[in-house]
C-alpha cells in the first residue's frame, strides 16, 4: 500500500484524524446505553438501540475507510438490513403490548420477574 495520489475523497479522510471518529462513535454508543438504562418508554428504548447500532456502523466505516478496505462497509450493509428487520418485528411487538396492557412502560412488564 503506497500513499495516495487521488484528489478528492482520500484528502477528506486524511484531514480528520481517526481518533475523532473513535470519540464520536463511543459517545454515541454511551448515549444509547444511558437511554436504555434511564428511560422507561419502550419506544425511546428502541430509539436508543438504534443509536447504538449507528455508533457501531460509524466505527466500522471509519476503520474500513482508513484501511481502504470495503469489507467493513459490506458488514455495515448487513447490519442495516438486520436493523430494519429488528425494527419491523420490535415495533409490532410494542404495538401488541400496548393493545394488551394499554401502556408501553417497561416498568409495568414485571410478570416474568423472578
Amino acid at each position: 500500500m503506497q500513499p495516495t495520489q487521488q484528489v478528492s475523497i482520500p484528502e477528506l479522510i486524511q484531514q480528520v484524524p481517526l481518533n475523532y471518529y473513535l470519540i464520536v462513535s463511543t459517545a454515541l454508543f454511551v448515549i444509547g446505553i444511558i437511554g436504555v438504562l434511564t428511560r422507561r418508554n419502550a419506544i425511546i428504548i428502541f430509539m436508543s438501540i438504534e443509536l447504538m447500532l449507528n455508533a457501531v456502523n460509524l466505527l466500522l466505516i471509519a476503520f474500513s475507510s482508513y484501511r481502504s478496505d470495503s469489507a467493513g462497509q459490506v458488514f455495515v450493509f448487513f447490519i442495516m438490513a438486520v436493523a430494519a428487520a429488528e425494527v419491523a418485528v420490535g415495533l409490532a411487538i410494542i404495538v401488541m403490548i400496548y393493545r394488551n396492557i394499554r401502556s408501553i412502560d417497561v416498568g409495568l412488564l414485571n410478570k416474568l420477574k423472578w
Binding site: 456502523n57 460509524l58 466505516i61 475507510s65 462497509q73
Partner: peptide
C-alpha cells in the same frame, strides 16, 4: 448527522 459523518469518512453508498 451520522449519514453526513459517513460521507466525511468517504462511504458514499452507505
Amino acid at each position: 448527522g451520522v449519514a453526513a459523518l459517513f460521507v466525511l469518512a468517504s462511504a458514499d453508498l452507505l
